[in-house]
Amino acid sequence: MIDVSYLDKIIQKVKQVVEKSKEEIYGLSENARQEYERAKRELEQVKTEIKEIIEEVDRLEKEYIKARIRLVEVSRNFRLFKEEDIKNAYEEAHSKQIELINKREKEKLLRNTREHLQRYLKNLEMTIKRSEELIINISMVIKILNNELSTLSDKIGELQQFQALGLSVITAQEEERKRIAREIHDGPAQSLANIVMRAEYILKLMEVNPSLVKDELLTLMELVRKSLADVRKIIFDLRPMSLDDLGLIPALRRYIEQFTKNYGIFVELTVLGKEYALDSTLAIAIFRIIQESLNNVRKYAGATEVVVKLEYLPDRINGTIRDNGCGFDVEKVLADKEGTAFGIMGMRERVQLLKGKFEIRSKIGRGTEVMFFIPVKKDNKSGGN
Rank of each mutant, 00 (worst) to 15 (best):
I2E: 15
L7H: 08
Q12W: 09
Q12G: 15
V18A: 11
E19H: 14
E23S: 13
E24A: 09
L28A: 06
S29K: 07
N31C: 11
Q34H: 08
E37Q: 07
R38G: 08
T48C: 08
E49F: 02
I50T: 01
I54G: 07
E56R: 05
R59Y: 09
E61T: 02
K62Q: 13
E63P: 06
L71V: 05
V72I: 08
S75D: 11
R76Y: 05
F78N: 10
R79I: 09
F81K: 00
E83Q: 07
D85L: 14
I86M: 06
K87P: 09
N88V: 02
N88W: 08
H94A: 11
I98S: 02
I101D: 01
K103C: 06
K103G: 06
R104F: 05
R111Q: 01
T113A: 05
R114F: 06
L117E: 00
Q118K: 08
R119P: 15
R119Q: 15
E125V: 07
I128Y: 08
S131Y: 02
I135R: 10
I135W: 12
I135A: 04
I136C: 10
I138L: 04
S139V: 11
M140E: 14
I144D: 15
N146V: 06
N147C: 09
N147D: 13
E148I: 15
L149W: 08
L159A: 02
F162I: 11
Q163W: 06
G166N: 00
L167G: 15
V169P: 07
R179N: 14
I180F: 15
A181C: 08
R182F: 13
E183H: 13
I184Q: 05
I184W: 10
H185K: 09
H185E: 12
H185V: 14
V196W: 05
A199P: 03
Y201C: 04
Y201L: 12
Y201H: 07
I202K: 03
L205R: 06
L205H: 00
E207N: 12
E207Y: 09
V208C: 04
N209M: 03
P210I: 11
V213P: 04
V213K: 00
V213E: 03
E216M: 10
L223C: 10
K226G: 13
K226T: 12
A229K: 04
D230Q: 08
F236R: 10
L238E: 02
M241D: 14
S242M: 02
L243N: 01
D244A: 10
L246D: 07
G247C: 04
R253S: 01
N262G: 04
V271D: 01
V271S: 03
K274F: 10
I284A: 06
A285E: 03
I286P: 01
F287L: 02
F287P: 05
F287S: 09
R288S: 06
I289W: 12
I290C: 04
V297L: 04
R298H: 12
R298K: 13
A301Y: 00
T304A: 14
V308A: 08
I317T: 01
G319P: 01
G319K: 01
T320W: 09
I321H: 04
G327N: 03
F328E: 02
D329G: 12
V330R: 10
E331A: 09
E338K: 08
F342N: 14
I344Y: 03
E349G: 14
L353W: 01
L354M: 11
G356V: 04
E359V: 10
E359N: 11
I360E: 12
I360T: 06
E369N: 07
F372H: 03
D379N: 04
N380E: 06
S382H: 03
N385I: 07
N385E: 10
N385T: 10
